[in-house]
Design a protein around this nucleic acid. Sequence first.
DNA 1: ACCTGAACACCGTTCAAGT
DNA 2: ACCTGAACACCGTTCAAGT
Lengths: 197, 197
Amino acid sequence: MAEGSYHHGNLRAALLERAEAVLTESGPAGLSLRGLARDLGVSHAAPTRHFRDRQALLDALAVSGFTEFNRRLGEAADGPGGVERRLEALGRAYLGFAVERHALLHLMFAAKHEERSSEELRQLGHHSLDIASRLLAEAQTAGAVRPGDPARLAQVAFSTVHGLAVLAVGGLLDETPLDEAGDLALRVLLAGLRPPA
Amino acid sequence: MAEGSYHHGNLRAALLERAEAVLTESGPAGLSLRGLARDLGVSHAAPTRHFRDRQALLDALAVSGFTEFNRRLGEAADGPGGVERRLEALGRAYLGFAVERHALLHLMFAAKHEERSSEELRQLGHHSLDIASRLLAEAQTAGAVRPGDPARLAQVAFSTVHGLAVLAVGGLLDETPLDEAGDLALRVLLAGLRPPA
DNA sequence: ACCTGAACACCGTTCAAGT
DNA sequence: ACCTGAACACCGTTCAAGT
């Protein structure tokens, strides 16, 4: 239980959870510490005990988002099947997360972060790229992907998938279902990565 | 001249210009109507004469950004050279704008817009995609690009370039110069778009 | 037309004080 | 440890009033 140990019990986790919901519903402009405190029934100063300021809460949310994101990417990369199938699964895992939790993904990739936690965020971002990089290196030895620095190829692969997610969330895809757009994007990407004949 | 006709002369344009600068320097959180008014030496209520509210100013900025963006894309698409060279130029024009004016591009593709102007923004966004679509259709008849709905292929092409720009601005590219990352991304993309052998 | 100045309800942040 | 309540300096928005 541990509910209501003092006034709330687990204010930190509750703040993060509520913050993502508000971010998803109303965007960054609609998120205020005072509003969160109201929603959770604590005084407006209570969040300060857990997050030094508004940005610290956003950073913590980005960190927890990246952790979950990387967990999902790793799962796809280590899944069943040959390397090409796992590359595809990786792309789909990315797109799935991006659409499901687009507010969070946006926060994760936003440029502005507090000095003190940006290092952790950068490392988490690198880990995402490393997962793709590792899989691409495996695909290279299998002869399914062109030679070249796999880290750079991972940047290209991420670009395609990330850009598609942004277009989808921004409404630029119109009536095209994301699944179909994702299919085509992954097909074009994998064809482009294949070794030149 | 027309400077200082009443108090400022061209407050609307001055607000937009200053707003983009603030957005670039300090991000959306650092942008306030009151701050802009202070910077320009007018009362805090003066901006309301030109923009009903904060969002209206952001929308107007996004519209002007898209107009310039589309102008540049159109220039690249109608430039000299064969269709493949112009496709490359289109990609470079996109990346150039994205990095030069990343705060503006971000605003342009942000999902949240006022009801009354989102239609105009959507149309401008479509026009960007149409430029790519038109060029891809031309490349298809020249046999340089695989068959299929050029509008969908344009979505894929935009995804790659847009995603790369986001990664660059977000600091995920590390020491990789954007030019090099852009080269590789465009090469992979164009290879992926080529008709299957 | 265009801008001012006061007003209102919000916000982030700080800090002494309570339990 | 964790939270409260008051305080301060900000903010967006509105509106009567000035020129």
